[in-house]
Simulated scan of single mutants.
Amino acid sequence: MELREKISANLSSVKEKSPLIHHITNYVTVNDCANIVLAIGGSPVMADDLEEVAEMVGFASALVLNIGTLNSRTIESMLVAGRRAKELGVPVILDPVGVGATKLRTDTAEKLIKELKPEVIRGNMSEIKVLAGQNVAIKGVDSLADEQGSSIIARTLATELHCVIAITGKTDVVSDGRQVCLLDNGHRILADVTGTGCMTSSLVATFCGVTNDYFTASVAGIISMGLAGEMAQSSMHHGDGIGTFRARLFDSIYNLSPEILAQEGKIRYE
């Protein structure tokens, strides 16, 4: 089956099965992540208490770990939930928000990767470069790195970590170490709305919840956000701003069909 057919079939499966996606994520974007999962057809749960995370993973189809607003309590919850996920074969999707900005973030991301071996790591160029051992400039949790060499970095790191690496930016890059896919959907206004990266990780996780082809799931999740960004922006009128765009982004995800996903996705191979 060709890649476009696979991502189309994956969206149909999401809408049919409504996979439960367990999040231990950051409190800045938690509501948006929950709503984006609902909009695409999944079912979110945002449980992070140490007393219930392992049990909750037992009901889940995928686990998102997002380090955007770290604290010692959630770090331990991530490790407990992640270990249980590995025991059960539940895919772990890591979003290393702001890794490299502080020692805590970097040490935590490295520990999660070493102990849990996530199936997918989704980040911006700065974050992925940090994980690849490169020195980059970071402003808060925002990326200041350019995209030069992104395909090589994605392939190399995916091979090293035995996972899918997904880099989101002007051109998105997804690699499982064997193949590299470049995705050109999206609009620059996506960067003006807090949480679109976190939401993309949640979309990737939702697709990972219905297939064990995590490369295809990552492509599907990223294209979904890119297409929704295009659709939302094209529907805006004079005087509309990022508030309108944000609302229409959810509407566009909600109305995304398998046919649109397959036909409008801008996919090329490196």
Rank of each mutant, 00 (worst) to 15 (best):
A9N: 15
I21H: 09
T29S: 12
A34D: 04
N35H: 09
N35Y: 09
I36Y: 05
V45Y: 10
A47C: 14
A47M: 08
D48C: 06
L50V: 14
V53C: 09
G68E: 03
I75G: 02
I75C: 04
V80M: 11
V80I: 14
R83H: 13
G89Y: 09
P91H: 03
I93Q: 03
I93F: 04
P96H: 03
V97F: 06
V97W: 06
T102N: 08
K114E: 14
K114I: 00
P118W: 12
V120W: 10
I121Y: 12
G123W: 03
L131S: 03
N135T: 13
K139P: 00
K139T: 04
G140H: 10
V141Y: 11
Q148L: 03
A154F: 07
R155W: 00
T156A: 09
C163P: 04
I165R: 07
I167N: 02
D172Q: 07
D172L: 04
D176I: 11
Q179P: 00
V180T: 15
D184E: 15
G186I: 10
H187K: 12
V193G: 01
V193H: 08
T194M: 03
L203Q: 04
V204M: 06
T206G: 07
T211F: 08
N212T: 14
A217N: 11
S235K: 15
H238C: 00
G243S: 09
F245N: 03
A247F: 14
A247P: 02
L249A: 04
F250G: 01
I253D: 05
N255Y: 13
L261S: 07
R268H: 14
